[in-house]
C-alpha cells in the first residue's frame, strides 16, 4: 500500500515570529497511501507547520522535498501546483451555492467564460461516488442544507478532485457528532487507500487511532516522536504530547506501515 519514498518530506524546518520560536528543526514526512497524524498540545506548532507546507507562511530555514526533489513553496498557488491541498477547519464553502458550484469554485469549467454546467455536475457526481460519499442526495442542493459531515465531505472531495497528491485536513471532526465523525473518518481512510498522502491534524486521539498509520508528535515547536499506530498506545502518545523530550526523528521510522 505505501512505499518508502516520502511524498512530502520536511527537514529541519524552523520558523520564528519575532522572538518567539514557533518551530525548531522540525522534521516531518508523509508517504503515498499513508495517513499521517500530526498531534500536539495548543501552541505546539502544528498550524505553523501546516502553513509552511500550504505556502501561507515561509519557513525561515530547512528543506521541503516533494517526491524526493527540493521544492520551494512561496504561496498557496505553489502548493496547489505541486498537488498539495489543505482543508481548513472552517471549510471555506459558500452556503448560498450548491455542491457543484462549491466543488468548482474558482476553477469553473468554461468556454469563453460561459459555464459548462453539465461537465461540472458530472465530474462532481463521479468524484463523490469515487469517495463513496453517498449521503448527499442531490449535487444541486445548496451547501446550507447539508449536515456538518456532508459539508466536510464536500470540502474534502473538492480538495482531492484536482489530482492532488497530499491532502491536509485541519481538525476535520472538531464540530461533528458521533455518526458524522465516523462518516468523515471513513472518508479519510479511503483517501489513504487510494494512494494519497493524507495529513490529519486532530486533538482527538480517538480519531487519530481510528485513522492514522503513523503519528508525529510536536511539543513546544520541536519533534518529540514518530509513532507507529499499531505498535503504540494512546497513553504513550499522550505522554509524548504533555512531557515528551525533543529528539531528532529523521530516518527513525524504520518499518513502513502495512
Amino acid at each position: 500500500m505505501a512505499n518508502d519514498t516520502p511524498l512530502l518530506e520536511l527537514r529541519d524546518i524552523s520558523k520564528s515570529f519575532g522572538s518567539v520560536q514557533a518551530l525548531v528543526d522540525v522534521d516531518f514526512e508523509v508517504r503515498p497511501g499513508e495517513v499521517m497524524a500530526l498531534v500536539g498540545d495548543n501552541g505546539a506548532g502544528k498550524s505553523t507547520l501546516i502553513k509552511c507546507i500550504a505556502g501561507t507562511h515561509m519557513a525561515d530555514g530547512g528543506r521541503i522535498l516533494f517526491e524526493g526533489h527540493d521544492v520551494s513553496i512561496h504561496g498557496p498557488k505553489d502548493a496547489a501546483r505541486l498537488g498539495i491541498e489543505v482543508v481548513y477547519q472552517d471549510l471555506a464553502l459558500c452556503d448560498n451555492l450548491d455542491v457543484v458550484q462549491n466543488m468548482f469554485l474558482g476553477r469553473e469549467v468554461n468556454k469563453l467564460q460561459v459555464l459548462n454546467e453539465a461537465a461540472m455536475e458530472e465530474k462532481t457526481s463521479s468524484t463523490l461516488s469515487t469517495l463513496a460519499v453517498t449521503t448527499i442526495r442531490s449535487v444541486r442542493q445548496t451547501v446550507a442544507t447539508l449536515s456538518g459531515g456532508q459539508r466536510q465531505s464536500v470540502a474534502v472531495a473538492r480538495a482531492v478532485m484536482w489530482n492532488s497528491k497530499v491532502v491536509i485536513l485541519d481538525e476535520p471532526t472538531a464540530a461533528l457528532g458521533v455518526a458524522q465523525t465516523e462518516q468523515v473518518l471513513a472518508l479519510v481512510r479511503r483517501l489513504g487507500e487510494q494512494g494519497l498522502g493524507v495529513v490529519i491534524i486532530s486533538h482527538n486521539l480517538h480519531d487519530v487511532f481510528e485513522t492514522a498509520d503513523r503519528i508525529t508528535v510536536l511539543r513546544l515547536g520541536r519533534n518529540v516522536g514518530v509513532y507507529e499506530r499499531r505498535t503504540t498506545s494512546q497513553q504513550a502518545v499522550v505522554e509524548a504530547i504533555t512531557a515528551g523530550r525533543p529528539i531528532k526523528v529523521s530516518g527513525i521510522p524504520a518499518e513502513a506501515p502495512v
Binding site: 458550484q101 469554485l105 476553477r107
Partner: peptide, 20 residues
C-alpha cells in the same frame, strides 16, 4: 458566466471565494 458565479460566491462567503 464565471463572472456571475464569482459574484454569488463573493456575496455568499468572501473569504471562501478568496481562498478559491
Amino acid at each position: 458566466t464565471t463572472f456571475g458565479r464569482h459574484v454569488y460566491a463573493v456575496g455568499g462567503n468572501a473569504e471562501a471565494a478568496r481562498r478559491a
